[in-house]
Amino acid sequence: MTAAKKPKLAVWKFSSCDGCQLSLLDCEDELLTVADTVEIAYFLEATRAEVKGPYDVSLVEGSIGTPHDAERIKQVRRQSKVLITIGACATAGGIQALRNFREYDGLVRAVYARPEYIKSLATSTAIADHVSVDFELRGCPINKYQLLELLNAFLNGRKPLIPPHSQCLDCKQAGTVCVMVAKGTPCLGPVTQAGCGNLCPSVNRGCYGCFGPKETPNAAALAKQMAALGWDDRQIKQAFRSFNANAPAFRNLADGVKAGE
């Protein structure tokens, strides 16, 4: 790959904590190779230098939470050949999507001393709800190896190895003992997409669902088992209402649970 033909990479931030784009800087060992293979054209977290678009690949972090966000994402899409969203905010609306289930004006008044300064939308939503997205990389935060795999697949023109199957496959293949069966610990793993490297079950914790719903999740059946293991409605509702609260499978499950907020 000659220097002149290096693909231009842009990293964009919307409503988010920056943790996902930091994963790119976290790549450490591989960072120099990344910088060598792509031209980092726009990445304010790393450099103030800006190269004008269009861009070959845009990584978009964060959700759409303000009218300004909703306009800006359209510009980003127009300038990007490939648009990849990274992280739970960008793929599901993030933790800030909890406001989607509350009365918005009341929330703003409760949180801010001068609510009239706040210009945000009543909901926090995924990027894909606003523009077409080429690939969604899950996680809160994303896994840096998956990010590298995604860039790698893009650079080499192949399909990324980011399976949408359950966390359970990864636990079993890693030899992690099931915390739900062996300890009775409720775990979102059976309805959550793999990708984190079974962080929580490997230290005897149930999965928190950071990577969002897996393909064809059966959240209702899992919720029933969580109840059998001793969780009340409120605990079940809260388990599904976290980083991926607005992902349809989790949202629908929590909406159906009658429990105080």
Partner: peptide, 13 residues
């Protein structure tokens, strides 16, 4: 199918 999580644990073990 109402109960099955299609999580694949049965096939892994």
């Amino acid at each position: 199918a109402e109960r099955c999580l299609n999580c694949a644990n049965c096939t892994m073990v």
